[in-house]
Amino acid sequence: MLRNSVVLCAASLVALALAPLSPAAAAAYRVETGQTHIDFAIGAKGYPVTRGEFHRFNASVAIDAAAPAKSQVAFDVAAASIDTHAPLLDDYVRGAGFLDTAHHPGIAFHSTTVRQMNDRTVELAGNLSLLGVTRPETFRVTVTPEGTAFRLVAQGEIRRSDFGMTGGLPLVSDTVTITVSTLALAQ
């Protein structure tokens, strides 16, 4: 009993001593699914912009408000959950020329670095995996505190041909604007 307490004490002391050397990790936040939208917009010759969203995803967000660079973001999105409000078009986009969901069910983004631009904006760099191709991409994220929570709106542009998605080119444009908005709740 006494021995156990001594060990515990010693462990606490060691932990305390090490604390300044290994700074606390960014705190995990809970992503409010109902307030998260993974939207995209894409142009096509002669047509107004086509918009859609992905409904199914898993996300984790860790934020360090004092040291934003330590924050981390990961999104894993079910490609087949695409919704352009036109079921026939969705079926097509799930097909081989575009998302090819039968072979590539997931789209993933895992952040690598976060750079603070100003007190409301960070630049989020990470690896985007789509169609089996993983490439570095960056998103500009506006961060708005809401009490203890943060509203995050990330926007970036990708060239889908970089990932081998060539369906509909050149009528349907190569550039896709991706906007992800979410509410991250402190736990």
Partner: peptide, 18 residues
């Protein structure tokens, strides 16, 4: 007509073609 005057969005036009 959709491709000329932008009468339809892509999704509608696609559905009509289909």
């Amino acid at each position: 007509q959709g491709t000329l005057g932008g009468a339809f969005d892509l999704a509608t036009s696609f559905t009509l073609y289909q």
